[in-house]
Amino acid sequence: MAITLNINGRDYSIDADPQMPLLWAIREKAGLMGTKFGCGIAQCGACTVIVDGNAVRSCNTPVATAVGKSVRTIEGVSENNDHPVQVAWQDLTVPQCGYCQSGQIMSAVALLERTPEPSDNEIDKAMAGNICRCGTYPRIRAAIHKAAEMSKT
């Protein structure tokens, strides 16, 4: 079935089953490989993208439900990797293996858009749905505070 998806401000015409998980439409149909397949059962958060301003797990979102909405992936966070979250991530060398990090960054971006200066508790709550097997959580929290600080000036 022909579907038009708006990803990072650009329209993609793709052929996909309407019930195909958005994750596969993004990766295999639109060819954007930054969004990762982690567990496939909505447990880990590696596949997190932002749909109409809210973080969702693309592995359990039927692509049909994203039609007519604005989908943002890691590729659309900034033009030159200079979004405050990306800069803070680089400054504090947040990733270790890196696999979960595009999902982590999308959850952090969604959080800061609604809550520009989150407390530790708000960060923990918002980021709980993104698992990191390397245990980079303390650096993630620090980087979100740093990104919030940078965004103020």
Partner: peptide, 12 residues
Amino acid sequence: AREVGSVQIQTA
């Protein structure tokens, strides 16, 4: 509502 899964699950 804040205890249902995670933020991504609460959105969906």
